[in-house]
Design a protein around this nucleic acid. Structure first.
Lengths: 350, 350
DNA sequence: AAATATAGTTTTAACGGTAACATTCACAGG
DNA sequence: CCTGTGAATGTTACCGTTAAAACTATATTT
């Protein structure tokens, strides 16, 4: 289809190598030669063949990103941050979507690791799969985790302080006078566990007994929250306030409550986590815990590029932990304007 | 890093070619030989090198998708549909995000077309750029348009009947008794023009004069709707109902109205387009026009794969047009439950 | 003027596959 | 016993690029 280095070389009576150097701005070629090469390459509309280059250099300038849910604006925003930094570093993004299925995650990883220079993964796999990832890293695959950690896996990661997330949410409810506080907990992921941990910490710090009956299992997606809440309503014995593991779950739960004519913000308080897009425009604007998804994505790419382009320093143990902050809206009681406490990025060694 | 075909061949005393055939399930190799090859390849953890394969075959099994706004759930859903079909056909998705900037779109296209087997594009470029795309197609690049067309470009595309979108929205408002109906119109994109056309058609079919003062320019994003509505409120002379070019614009406008204490669904009616995620859970659930984004994505990939794998038939002129349907919620007046008229896919030649 | 450095270029050999054609071998049919 | 046939495998060359080593001139030193 397009012209190749050889075509340009032939036309100018040069070797392919010199042309290659000229195209890549190698200072070894004479300025005049470079100009001639560039002129011809423009005329022939030369486009470098990325496959050939990748084969020769073993670098594709592709970054694989594996997210559990593309439709969740939280990950769309992370992707947005990733895209911004990647573009400025001349990398392109290949997407994998696990839809919170472990098997899908693993097959996407397998498909992408050999086609890309490195992966950014928000894993839904349980800690028991950490070994698989460790083997890949051992084998040379570059991996940065984002949003969720994988216990036992030692690689760079960008996370939120999820214990703090649970504490901020729960303490807010306690400050509002609630004592019977429920939790819709996620399963498996590190974030879910830590948010539960924060919930328990906040309770015990305020001398409230942990009551297992008030903690219900629930996935991370809207339908999960909806179903879990429906079951809870049906079974009766509702708490006066609920901390849901994340915003989609909270929104699903709110929908179920709405359908049962239970008014969120009046009959029951709700806090989510993640500050989803449109969370402030919902029927009942959702009080939530927030941190910057854009910064997460950006930080992850920077770490991955360091890993790929290896500047010598070992960054295996580098973790970025973002501090979350509470965003108060009306789902825990009447309130008009939003209060957002600025979130900040805190780099942190090991 | 990993083992190569040559390694396996050496180990078994076979030629690379036979091993290649065995790995690719060529029926020419003896079953017993294939088994031996597979056994060794498993033992050595052989992973085919995609770059080498792509270089030799000129096929990468990558599909580039260029969208104008990743954070808009509309495109996230299209992407989801694309991903589903792509995965089952063993293709991976490379993402480009134009953010509604023409220059960004063109640079992403340029970056992706040589790395992929074909592109699915939701163009924000104006019709004047159609020639550029025509040249690329001439040059062998496979392109399928989605969501928006590019006048003058002849290639497969998957669209909605946007004139119908405008008519459905506007007629709904007319049926509710409105005569002073405003329109927040998009600029440039084919969808915007056609929705405006539908708006005008509906007006004239109902003997309402087209009033230029009631049509305001506005982009396609939430902030655009917000700003346009703010200006309108400030300038006064509001209509009794508004059809916004799409849901994000409608939502932005609703936010501006809310801040000005104008109650949507009571003081003013609002219809959007696209049926965004969470549109039914907003402060005022948004009446909108809907069609299946998943089907759009799926259809686009199928067309692109036909283009790539060329089954002989010329599908250049193939257009898929989805029929939209009205989704009534409360933004045009009190209403509790949603009525959705099922949308359907209508394939259509030329 | 010979020896030495140096800028600019070429040569050779990969990188890891696959396409196309060539070869071998066993066996059937005459 | 020879030949034809088809199944199974092998050979050669090429995909388009770059790394590394090997040349050339030309300039610089002594």
């Amino acid at each position: 289809m397009g012209a190749t280095l050889a075509d340009i070389a032939r036309e100018l009576g040069l070797s392919k190598m010199t042309v290659s150097r000229a195209i890549n701005n190698d200072p070894l070629v004479k300025a005049k030669t470079r100009d001639r090469v560039l002129e011809v390459s423009r005329r022939l509309n030369y486009q470098p063949n990325h496959f050939a280059r990748a084969l020769a250099t073993n670098r594709s300038y592709l970054i694989g990103v594996i997210v559990p849910d593309l439709m969740h604006s939280y990950f769309a925003e992370i992707l947005h941050g990733i895209g911004a930094v990647a573009r400025s570093a001349k990398y392109q993004i290949v997407i994998g979507n696990s839809e919170e299925y472990v098997a899908r995650e693993l097959s996407e990883v397998e498909a992408l690791r050999s086609r890309t220079d490195g992966l950014i993964i928000a894993p839904c796999a349980p800690a028991s799969k950490a070994g698989l990832y460790a083997d890949m890293i051992e084998d040379g695959t570059k991996i940065v985790l984002i949003d969720r950690t994988l216990d036992g896996l030692d690689c760079p990661m960008v996370l939120t302080d999820d214990v703090e997330v649970g504490m901020l949410a729960t303490e807010h409810l306690i400050r509002l006078g609630h004592r019977r506080i429920g939790h819709l907990r996620g399963t498996i992921t590190s974030t879910s566990k830590k948010r539960l941990e924060g919930y328990r910490k906040a309770l015990s710090a305020n001398d409230i007994n942990y009551n297992e009956a008030l903690v219900r299992e629930c996935g991370l997606m809207e339908t999960d929250g909806y179903r879990a809440m429906q079951a809870w309503i049906e079974g009766g014995d509702l708490p006066t306030a609920i901390f849901a593991v994340n915003d989609p779950a909270a929104i699903g739960a709110m929908q179920a409550l709405h359908e049962a004519d239970i008014v969120v913000g009046k009959d029951i308080a709700m806090v989510g986590g993640g500050n989803i897009h449109y969370g402030d425009m919902l029927r009942v604007p959702l009080t939530t815990v927030s941190w910057s998804r854009g910064e997460m994505g950006q930080a992850a790419v920077r770490l991955l590029i360091q890993l790929i382009e290896g500047n010598g320093h070992d960054i295996t143990h580098q973790k970025m932990i973002l501090s979350p902050s509470l965003v108060v809206r009306s789902s825990c009681g009447a309130m008009t304007s939003s209060i957002v406490v600025a979130s900040q990025l805190s780099p942190q060694k090991n």
